[in-house]
């Protein structure tokens, strides 16, 4: 074995930079998360305090509010969003292939490649109470102009709409490719049996989508603890913070902005542990059910 290691020394050397990267930027900070069990000191050693910060965390009412927000937003983005890309793929498939379909496809994928900063910029204009397209339409139909971005009751729907806007097209790819993989003889057989458009969708296409649908749904549930902080950071403001503050934004605000490092790390560790368990659970469930896992 030593001989083999020696023979392959160049290979180990080639892996070294990447492995070093993981040790420095991943393992080291993960180990440093033990700060959750210490009191942070600017000068001198941190003081071990055991579960103190977790106890404080679990007795903070705001923490439960934040968990609730995280779960609500995740639910919207996982469950409510789920039918949209499926329906979009079905609809694309029903369009006759040609330039129109191509244009719809290419346009609908575009938002996926824009950063949330850019999307926020686009949506601020889109929803602008004074000059935005949405409010122009609302007014046209007799409604009243208002700012949805600072309205507690509408902000969650703004989050949902903007993330659907961003992902519906791109996420439909996986379903569209499953549809394109259906054997042509199945369509032929259905046609001979007199199946119409709806019957074909119901009995041929949807069964072919069952596999990817289950995989996507299960694997997305694995990310339930991260409700998409990069979106929320760009869509939150003081007026709606109580509705959109999630674990990640809470850790960022309490920790990096307010300097309560130990306490915020405890919240972060809590999220990390639950999140990891969820990812592992969903990975193995999906692997067992559909043969496809998260990696």
């Amino acid at each position: 074995m030593l001989k083999r290691i020696k023979k392959d020394r160049v290979l180990y050397l080639m892996m070294l930079p990447a492995l070093l990267y993981f040790v420095i930027f991943h393992v080291w900070p993960i180990i440093e998360m033990r700060l959750a069990f210490y009191d942070y000191r600017i000068v001198g050693d941190n003081i071990f305090v055991g579960w103190k910060h977790f106890k404080t965390l679990f007795s903070t009412p705001a923490f439960y509010k934040i968990i609730k927000n995280t779960l609500v937003i995740s639910f919207m983005k996982i469950v409510l969003f789920f039918p949209f890309p499926v329906a979009f793929a079905l609809a694309l498939n029903e369009l006759r292939s040609g330039p129109f379909r191509k244009v719809v496809q290419v346009t609908s994928y575009l938002p996926h490649f824009l950063s949330w900063v850019v999307i926020a910029g686009v949506w601020y204009e889109f929803l602008s109470p004074s000059s935005g397209l949405v409010m122009d339409l609302v007014e046209l139909f007799g409604g009243e102009r208002k700012n949805l971005l600072t309205d507690k009751n509408s902000i969650l729907w703004v989050l949902f709409a903007s993330s659907t806007w961003r992902s519906m097209g791109w996420d439909s790819i996986i379903y569209l490719s499953a549809i394109l993989g259906i054997n042509a003889s199945l369509y032929e057989a259905a046609r001979i049996d007199g199946a119409g458009r709806w019957a074909t969708i119901r009995y041929i296409i949807l069964p072919a989508l069952a596999g990817p649908m289950i995989t996507v749904l299960i694997l997305n549930v694995g990310f339930v603890m991260s409700a998409g902080y990069d979106q929320i950071l760009n869509f939150s403001n003081d007026a709606v913070l109580s509705r959109v503050d999630i674990l990640d934004t809470y850790v960022y605000r309490i920790g990096l902005l307010q300097g309560q490092y130990s306490f915020a790390t405890a919240a972060n560790l809590f999220k990390g542990v639950i999140g990891t368990i969820m990812i592992l659970l969903t990975h193995f469930t999906s692997k067992k059910l559909t043969g496809k896992g998260a990696w």
Binding site: I24, F25, H26, W28, P29, I30, E32, M33, L35, D248, V251, Y252, G255, L256, Y261, A264, T265, N268, L269, G272, G275, T276, I279, L280, A294, W295
Partner: peptide, 13 residues
């Protein structure tokens, strides 16, 4: 891949 370090610790590193 499955365990992400916290942002505070990344900052300190």
């Amino acid at each position: 891949m499955i365990f992400e370090p916290g942002i505070i610790q990344e900052y300190f590193v």
